[in-house]
Design a protein around this nucleic acid. Structure first.
Lengths: 351, 351
DNA sequence: TCACTATAGCTAAACGTTTACCTACATCAT
DNA sequence: ATGATGTAGGTAAACGTTTAGCTATAGTGA
């Protein structure tokens, strides 16, 4: 076993010629205990001179907070999830907490193992973009009253109450579909990931509802589905490529709505390769806002998901709970923002 | 103080009708101690039935590893650093370790605080892309024999030996400059971040050396410098925008080498706004490989930095040390790869 | 039978904190 | 002088694990 020669509270007490209790009270700025200014100074000097560093391990064992919270994401190479992550990290930091992070690859087994690690480490709280087994996997944490906030996806299959922050997937899809319709498109294909993530279905619903509200019939053949399971950036792009190829078989289609931006990456690659002009030959709308939507020559019409805001809200909830000031459970849905772009041809002037 | 009702080794011992020592030996699969198969089974069953979860906090306090390593990056919104991070996370995970992460914003104060947190948490090791105060800030860790690997930037201002993995900045800049020269360019501007990060100077050196090797005189007026301190993606882009504006004042310049891809983002934005065609009016080479270099219509000539490889190497070193099989200190420089693109006009046919 | 060894498991100290409770002393009213 | 009260700080148990060292029992050879 490694022998790290640490300076302990005992060393400080010895140097300050007092007891460990007093040192502890001084260094924790105890409000319930009066310490003479002289003693305070002696102890603080001793701690500084020795380079004392308090152990969260020992104090954690005693029942205090570890100062650690954890974040679980199903994907690293996803702009939206990363924005959530960045916001969480920033706030955790500001609060003096250490943030642990784990990529679950949308795999419940990875998720389970990661959550087991959290349990072993006694982390104070967990922020998770769960897999479809999220409820089951985080049961231990919830059962032990360790705060859990579910982000972007509900914790399905449990009757427990839980905190939940997500973007408005229905609204996002509705808005983009509406935008395309208002530009005169009626034959709008949608590239869609059919998955076990229950709330992704809301995107298809938003699409349908917009069509309905504008009196356009829903055509199942315009819904191009992928059912990837072990999703990676590459495989998702590949599916986007394939779906776009399919979509382009139908000459009546004038616009594609990529309900996930990674699918758009594959799709645009396909179009570039086959010299299909955007928006000349095909209009494109994207759900998501990676950097390329505005770095390319044609700015893409897209829906920005409020990643930073979601991360902040989630972190706020967690810290409210950790500071013991939370009343009940929060469930909030945050709207997305539509950014028009040059990737959508205006057909209303033509007709 | 929160009262989390945990199942401890004591509970397991009671249920299995044995002592905590035996439980510990069983659950740790002790090699030095023989346990009867019957006892082993009884203990394992008891642990499972009670849902026992071992505490890294208690075992860490006792002197065992915490199963935690930490990563420090100066920027989140940087593609290269993120690739390093992804690789580290993947390996940490595979090894059963928890990874903590902190964005230092290239600010030594943030870095110092983050490293203090690591010390308090008794993390097992630290992987860091250091600020210019990295040596000072990580002194505590190194002094206490907690493995530290420095990534991409050296730990300046210390005589300590340390492990160091980086990309070949000199070679990267050399290769891109050479590529531009081979395409007939001689008036090549470079957008350059002049900073306290010592090894960034290597990029300017690579540029100079390539010019020299091809007999092209170095012209200081072609070096456009920014000296940002609190660098963010936005401010860096802004500087890229500004530098590009300056560069375009000089009509003899035919190519720009962006020695940081974020500078290129601002620069390209400027060119798009001012209808400057790439590569018709200006050729562009980029150091770095964010997604947009291949998502835009004109594929950009760029240098890919070996982020994943660097992350893997760094993680391997750390785990070799943690598993006690490391001989000395590693210092390795990994080459980058040039990807030609359509953003560079071939002037050799014209002349 | 006795001394010895091997086996299988137990006891208890230790890791570094926190904190309930105790103590020694001073002050003060009666 | 005495008991009560307040002050400033000390003592020691506890948190959940690991492990050195101990013990009780059984087996073995002379």
């Amino acid at each position: 076993m490694r022998k790290i020669n640490r300076v302990t509270i005992k060393d400080v007490a010895t140097l300050a010629n007092t007891s460990v209790a007093t040192v502890s009270y001084v260094l924790n700025n105890s409000q319930t205990r009066y310490i003479t200014p002289a003693m305070r100074k002696t102890v603080e000097d001793a701690a500084r001179d020795l380079g004392y560093v308090k152990s969260m391990v020992a104090s954690g064992l005693k029942g205090k907070k570890m100062g650690v919270i954890s974040f679980l994401t199903p994907q690293f190479d996803n702009h939206f999830f990363m924005e959530i992550f960045f916001a969480i990290e920033r706030i955790a930091n500001r609060k003096g907490y250490t943030l642990t992070v784990c990529n679950t690859f949308d795999d419940p087994v990875h998720e389970r193992i990661a959550i087991e690690r959290m349990s072993r480490l006694w982390v104070d709280a967990c922020l998770v973009i769960p897999t479809h087994k999220g409820a089951e996997n985080s049961a231990y944490l919830r059962a032990h009253k360790i705060p859990v906030v579910s982000i972007e996806r509900p914790l399905t299959g449990t009757d427990d109450k839980y905190d939940f922050i997500s973007s408005d997937n229905f609204g996002a899809a509705y808005d983009m579909t509406e935008y395309l319709i208002k530009n005169g498109h009626t034959r709008i294909a949608i590239a869609y990931w059919e998955s076990l993530i229950t709330n992704l279905g809301e995107r298809l619903e938003g699409y349908r509802q917009a069509l309905k509200d504008y009196g356009i019939g829903f055509d199942e053949s315009l819904v191009k589905r992928t059912t990837l399971v072990n999703r990676t950036e590459d495989s998702t792009q590949g599916e986007g490529y394939r779906l776009t190829q399919e979509i382009l078989q139908d000459p009546t289609v004038t616009a594609v709505f990529y309900s996930q931006y990674v699918l758009a990456e594959g799709g645009i690659k396909y179009m570039r390769q086959h010299k299909i002009q955007i928006p000349g030959d095909m209009s494109v709308g994207v759900l998501g806002g990676p950097k390329w939507v505005e770095m390319s020559e044609v700015k893409f019409a897209h829906i920005m998901q409020p990643g930073a805001l979601i991360g902040e809200k989630a972190a706020e909830i967690i810290f409210a709970k950790l500071e013991g000031e939370s009343p009940g459970f929060v469930q909030e849905k945050i709207p997305c923002t539509l950014y028009p772009g040059d990737s959508v041809r205006d057909l209303t002037n033509n007709g």
